[in-house]
């Protein structure tokens, strides 16, 4: 079980410039930044949580609620856009009923638009957890979602 205190202990000097690395490490371990985490970090670094929250919301890496079981990351790089990724994105949003950065009510899926994933030769590209899907078409979207729903049903 990961815990915040042992992360904090690693940062022996409590300088402001350790804030982002600490938050990154917490997010790596927990998947998101909880209120408790912010309070603990603030206490340790002597920074008001309001400031930490302000900083963390600035950067797209940090999230404040857990990811869905199947975290969908869809590339929104220029090349994928040129290759009409917006059609895929629209379909995904419609099928899942969520927007960028949100999680479905049942906690199964979460959606994240990311910057270029370097798959410019094979766009549109998306990833569900670690699995990559390339050269996406409109027809593939329901198939992919169905695939994961099927796993859940079994």
């Amino acid at each position: 079980m990961p815990d915040i205190d042992s992360i904090l202990e690693k940062y022996s000097y409590t300088q402001h410039d350790n804030l982002i690395p600490i938050l990154q490490e917490i997010q790596d371990d927990f998947g998101y930044l909880s209120k408790e985490a912010l309070v603990k970090v603030g206490d340790y670094l002597k920074i008001p949580t309001g400031k930490i929250y302000g900083l963390a919301t600035f950067y797209s890496q940090f999230r404040f609620e857990p990811k869905g079981k199947y975290h969908i990351r869809i590339c929104n790089g220029t090349s994928c856009h040129i290759n009409s990724n917006f059609i895929i994105l629209k379909e995904l949003k419609k099928k899942l009923g969520i927007n960028d950065g949100e999680v479905t009510k049942n906690g199964l899926f979460s959606l994240e638009e990311t910057e270029c994933m370097s798959g410019c030769g094979f766009g549109p590209v998306m990833m569900v957890n670690e699995k990559v899907y390339t050269r996406l078409t409109l027809e593939k979207v329901p198939e992919i979602i169905h695939f994961y729903l099927q796993i859940e049903n079994e």
Binding site: M117, S118, G119, C120, G121, F122, V125, K131, V132, T134
Partner: peptide, 9 residues
């Protein structure tokens, strides 16, 4: 093995 090739799975 680079980010371009890995994205092909």
């Amino acid at each position: 093995q680079n980010s371009c090739s890995i994205i092909t799975g």
